[in-house]
Design a protein around this nucleic acid. Sequence first.
DNA 1: CCGCCGCCTTGATCTGGATCAAATCCCCGT
DNA 2: ACGGGGATTTGATCCAGATCAAGGCGGCGG
Lengths: 201, 201
Amino acid sequence: MAQIRTFDRRRLIFQQDDPCPGLFIVGEGLVKVYNLAAGGKEHVLHLVEPGGTFAEVAAIGGFDCPASAEAMEPTICALLPLEPFKRVLAEDHGLCLGLLTGMAKWVRHFVGLMEDIVLRDALGRVAHYLLDTSGGRSDQIALPAMKKDLASHLNLTSETLSRTLRRLTESDLIDLLDGRHIRIKDAEGLRSVADGMFPES
Amino acid sequence: MAQIRTFDRRRLIFQQDDPCPGLFIVGEGLVKVYNLAAGGKEHVLHLVEPGGTFAEVAAIGGFDCPASAEAMEPTICALLPLEPFKRVLAEDHGLCLGLLTGMAKWVRHFVGLMEDIVLRDALGRVAHYLLDTSGGRSDQIALPAMKKDLASHLNLTSETLSRTLRRLTESDLIDLLDGRHIRIKDAEGLRSVADGMFPES
DNA sequence: CCGCCGCCTTGATCTGGATCAAATCCCCGT
DNA sequence: ACGGGGATTTGATCCAGATCAAGGCGGCGG
């Protein structure tokens, strides 16, 4: 029922205000979902990794795409077109319930991002992002994308992100392993920075 | 099946991290849904007028309240407690579909707010808010709440909101009728300010 | 292996909006 | 009407983070 779609690196998948083509599920690669301001500034709403979906909200709500999407790496997606999706949705109550709770979780995550941007300063945002991304699982974090895109996600410039990571390193809260990997040295301390404390050193 | 609940002015309805009591529907009054930062700064997520609902997301997703809610005026709500709500939801496919599209619209509105906060400056945010609130219907706008709460919703201070409204007035784009009412004089011009143009005068 | 181009870091400066500080205004209860 | 307390306006100053400006560092194609 679904189609397979492949996209080269830097390929635009859809643009803001395009009619919604359906529900995408990422199989491989990385997709950046973002908005553009009049002046050209970009805000990265969501970085979608394999297993994630995008364009669900527009597909369900029946309106045009509220953002643009671009493949950041060679990417393979399954696309479930709008009509069959709506048909299945109208029949399958279990699916409907599942989507509802999935959407609720997604909204909550999104409210969290908004809170970060509005209520935390740069240091707090980065600290909170690192804790969230590590998931408490491991103290080893692989950044999902280029730093400039992470910075945009957190509504920072890449310069500020760079300086902020340096500050956290100098306070012995994290280690910068290489450009793409970070180790959390002091999760406790990082948590207090995320909650507005000033790092000691 | 639902209970009626009344709240005095300034009465806290629930706090962030409380277990979700269920789905609220406002009958009369005004409810402020907001988050607090560590340092005490407040962000108004949503101002709920009669006919609106709140706490839906937590009720559906089954997690704790992601924000706090306070009655801004004497307020009457219907509260549909969690258990009966879940029971109905599990049985009624039509309701489930309705909630799903309602939630999608809400997410979209919310993405719009995020876009505003991240991609527009103070002038653009206020101009866009005024256009959105008028709905193109009438050129007469009744502000739903105190200016300091509107300012917080747009991630501004009340001082900046005040100055911004003055600038728009001096550019002949709006008229300040009284503390609670604004008339749009030049919707065209306001739109271009919202899209990043500098007001002429 | 080399060269190039784009990302990342670091430093210097600038600025929009926050913060601090007064007046006023306005609503509401007495 | 009167008084009081919070809301709003207005002015002066401050500051976190943006912007501007160089280097430095990879990674990839040839």
